[in-house]
């Protein structure tokens, strides 16, 4: 089965143009095509200058996020057949600077991620000879959801808070902080406090909740941030009530 559609694609070629434009590509598509298949078809058969990122085409590498008809999507998981509009508009992810065409600059995320110490901070180091840290399936379940983030940037693109104030740490980074805070092997919550429980951190989030809606991996960053707010608020309250046991 093949059908015809038009892709209206955002073009920005900084070497030649100062303003972005839209370019229309009309093409036949198969029923099982995702938007990424159409973009690859364009690049191979129509216009080899179109630039975009992609790799695994199975929804796990996180490269191919774009705005499809104004919504942030992984284009390898977004089927053309699901759009009944005459044309489908493809733009680079919102809120990020555009390097070229559909390629965004995600330096900001890469700089913020290490700041929340997204690695295991155990209470004390255990030698390998002593085997693994025990962790029950229930304990795994407590953080597992927040460990599923593929860093695709869709949540940043959906977050107006980030759009208005790029100093906001943002959904994915904070969800990863929650992932480690909730891990029974981890004892780094206090170490992460300076970045996470900061004005630009969880307290900047006004809970629009759209990050969770657009997350292709069901990570629920909005939930992670609200949980962090509760746990850091309780921690603060404990330090006020029992200053000595708070440990700092």
């Amino acid at each position: 089965m093949s059908d015809r559609t038009v892709l209206d694609v955002y073009r920005y070629l900084p070497d030649n143009e100062s303003e972005p434009t839209f370019q229309s590509y009309e093409l036949d598509y198969q029923d099982n095509w995702v938007v990424l298949d159409a973009l690859n078809h364009i690049k191979a058969e129509i216009d080899s200058t179109l630039s975009f990122r992609w790799s695994c085409r199975m929804g796990v590498c996180g490269s191919c996020g774009m705005m499809v008809n104004g919504e942030p999507k992984l284009t390898c998981e977004t089927f053309i057949r699901d759009y009944d509009t005459q044309t489908i508009t493809i733009e680079p992810l919102s809120h990020f600077p555009v390097i070229r065409d559909l390629v965004i600059n995600m330096d900001d995320f890469m700089e913020k991620l290490p700041r929340v110490s997204p690695w295991l901070i155990p209470d004390e180091d255990k030698p390998l000879e002593d085997g693994e840290y025990l962790q029950t399936p229930a304990q795994v379940a407590h953080y597992k959801r927040f460990s599923m983030c593929i860093n695709c940037m869709l949540c940043y693109s959906a977050c107006p808070v980030y759009g208005l104030d790029p100093s906001f740490t943002g959904p994915a980074v904070l969800a990863l902080a929650a992932r480690y805070n909730l891990d029974s092997r981890d004892d780094g919550m206090k170490e992460r406090a300076a970045e996470v429980s900061a004005h630009e951190g969880i307290w900047e989030c006004t809970y629009v909740g759209e990050c969770t809606q657009v997350c292709p991996k069901d990570v629920d960053p909005a939930g992670a941030i609200q949980m962090l707010k509760l746990s850091y608020a309780l921690d603060w309250a404990r330090s006020v009530v029992m200053p000595r046991s708070s440990g700092s």
Partner: peptide
Amino acid sequence: TRELTRPLPWNWWLKKAVY
């Protein structure tokens, strides 16, 4: 390279029901 920044328009919250 000259990167393009795209600030949010003032009426961003009118563009989506959720917002």
